[in-house]
């Protein structure tokens, strides 16, 4: 099937054109809703000099922690990176640059990037280190910081279900950054748990319309590691 069929059948095909020095968005919050197989494939390909935009940086040996292992990341744009011993080492040694960005500002930078909005004002971070060297403005008596939006050469996202046309449905809090990042990639690749035929997903329940998605791959294995397993007694 050609036309709108976005389905690819291997991780090689999913990442065709992926090059050193590219800017990459990776969806997920902690280890929840990360494109596990695509991350692993980039690790195997070994591309370096990457600028990576993701809320977090994985854990040692899993998720984006893999890219840290191979020193693939030149610049990391994230809101919180505390879960990772190797991250600290690379940061202190100067092997990697980190641009810490407030979580809501990061989400909005991706949303705006995908929507063709080059910059926006937000009160977040006004008067703090985050606002250093950025233009500010006062609207109706309140001070705001001008933040630039973000786009990427590749956006790697994780969804629950897709149809062949790239319409995506996310599951529970595994949605997080994935919908905005899907809109902001020059090439957006969605790794999903299930692919169905067009028409099988209810059009009024689609989270990300297929226009944003260029390639869809059915993940071969989702470990779905849990960072903080907290339970109550039954």
């Amino acid at each position: 099937m050609a036309g709108f069929d976005k389905v690819v059948h291997s991780y090689e095909e999913a990442l065709a054109g992926f090059k050193d020095g590219m800017t990459v968005m990776a969806g997920g919050f902690g280890l929840c809703g990360i494109p596990e197989g695509l991350i692993k494939k980039v690790y195997e390909l070994g591309n370096t000099g990457l600028t990576v935009i993701s809320n977090n940086a994985g854990v040692d040996g899993f998720g984006l922690g893999l890219w840290l292992e191979k020193r693939q990341i030149k610049t990391m744009i994230a809101s919180y990176v505390g879960e990772n011993a190797l991250f600290e080492k690379l940061l202190l040694s100067g092997e990697m640059e980190v641009i810490l960005t407030p979580q809501g500002t990061l989400a909005e930078k991706c949303r705006a990037g995908g929507a063709g909005i080059p910059a926006f004002y937000t009160a977040t971070g006004y008067g703090t280190k985050v606002a250093e060297d950025k233009p500010t403005a006062n609207f109706d008596g309140r001070d705001y910081v001008l933040e630039r939006s973000l786009t990427a050469d590749f956006s790697l996202v994780k969804a629950w279900k897709a149809d062949r046309f790239g319409n995506l449905v996310f599951r529970k809090t595994a949605m997080n950054f994935n919908p905005m990042m899907a809109t902001a990639g020059r090439i957006t690749v969605a790794e999903v748990e299930e692919i169905v035929e067009p028409g099988e997903l209810d059009p009024q329940n689609i989270h990300t319309p297929g226009i944003y998605v260029h390639r869809v791959i059915k993940g071969t294995h989702f470990e779905k590691r849990i960072e903080q397993r907290t339970v109550r007694k039954a």
């Binding site: 809101s79 919180y80 505390g82 600290e88 407030p102 979580q103 500002t105 977040t124 985050v130």
Partner: peptide
């Protein structure tokens, strides 16, 4: 070690 602000800056501003 600076781990990041997460959502705290957005929360206090909003």
């Amino acid at each position: 070690l600076v781990k990041g602000m997460g959502g705290a800056m957005d929360l206090v501003a909003g």
